[in-house]
């Protein structure tokens, strides 16, 4: 695995391998000094063409716990705004000597394109509406940590499916592991030909709630209102938000997840955020663990490939 670009590329076995590796890094993170020399001497470039404090911090922490050196690149302070092509930007960063680039980009497909030009490993930290594989992996880890089997598990993903890279990667991951995924949204927040994603579709959260083992809420972007995709955040909350009434109808063993940052009062009522079934902070903790595993496997296998050739 030179690169991690999508979940489909991993397949079920690839996901499981990352889960097993993550278990050992979870143990590392419990130590008084949560640091191992696994990637000492390796350089990881964090190329964030789109701002994301959470994902960047998570990757940065993961890389530091593996003793890698970190190079930070952000679009705001770069030549990207001066019309430099993506290829030129990537070749410039590579010329400084890096082993892996972690790419967050507002345009779908940018990590794929970069992987064609880059000799170093490319890890997709979220591209446009397309994919966010490490988010899906940390979500799988979080559900797996509860001792749940994915086989036959009912997972509902609620919200702006059309513009969500998290939805696309999570549908892929959950389905590869045998779960049944339903996307729940008003038709305006579903992509055209939504069936291409392989999930069941509902416009009625109340109809799927009783049968849901994992309720996965997506962040509602405020700009969707300007595009007339929903009439108002209030109407969205009433129809698709996790209210205390809906939380009561959710089974006791259900999990409530959200990739963050949460809009209190929109996707989820403030009263529900402290519900014991909410796993949002576990997701954040597991993000570091899973990203350690990804960095370790990707950079390690690239080094092994180079040694073999």
């Amino acid at each position: 695995m030179k690169d991690l670009l999508t979940i489909d590329q991993l397949g079920a076995d690839g996901i499981r391998e990352i889960m097993v590796t993550s278990d050992s890094f979870a143990e590392v993170c419990q130590r008084p000094i949560p640091k191992v020399p696994a990637l000492r001497g390796k350089t990881v470039a964090l190329m964030f063409f789109e701002n994301s404090t959470r994902t960047r911090t998570s990757f940065e922490t993961a890389a530091k716990r593996l003793s890698a050196d970190i190079m930070n690149f952000s679009a705001a302070s770069s030549s990207v705004n001066k019309g430099e092509s993506l290829r030129d930007t990537v070749e410039t960063i590579e010329a400084m000597g890096v082993d892996a680039v972690v790419v967050r980009h507002g345009s779908s497909g940018a990590p794929q394109q970069i992987s064609r030009w880059a000799a170093s490993s490319v890890i997709n930290a979220g591209d446009g509406w397309h994919a966010h594989p490490t988010q899906a992996l940390l979500d799988v880890y979080t559900i797996r940590e509860e001792g749940r089997s994915f086989e036959g598990l009912h997972i509902a993903i609620v919200g702006d499916i059309a513009h969500s890279r998290v939805a696309r990667s999570n549908i892929e991951a959950f389905r590869l592991l045998g779960a049944e995924v339903t996307v729940v949204a008003p038709p305006t927040l579903l992509p055209p030909h939504v069936e291409a994603l392989g999930a069941k579709v509902s416009n009625d959260l109340d109809a799927v709630l009783n049968d849901t083992d994992v309720l996965y809420l997506l962040r509602m972007q405020h700009e969707r209102m300007d595009q007339a995709l929903v009439p108002s955040l209030g109407e969205y909350h009433r129809a698709f938000g996790l209210t205390p009434e809906r939380a009561r109808r959710l089974s006791d063993s259900a999990l409530i997840m959200h990739p963050g940052p949460m809009n209190r009062g929109i996707e989820i009522s403030p009263e529900v955020i402290d519900d014991p079934r909410v796993r949002v902070l576990n997701q954040v903790t597991n993000g570091v663990i899973v990203r350690m595993a990804v960095l370790y496997l990707v950079i390690g296998s690239a080094a092994a490939d180079r040694a073999a050739s």
Partner: peptide
């Protein structure tokens, strides 16, 4: 093109 591929790839579609 707006269709199955634009949905899979997460690229805005031209209907």
């Amino acid at each position: 093109n707006e269709g199955e591929w634009s949905t899979r790839l997460g690229i805005g579609g031209l209907p």
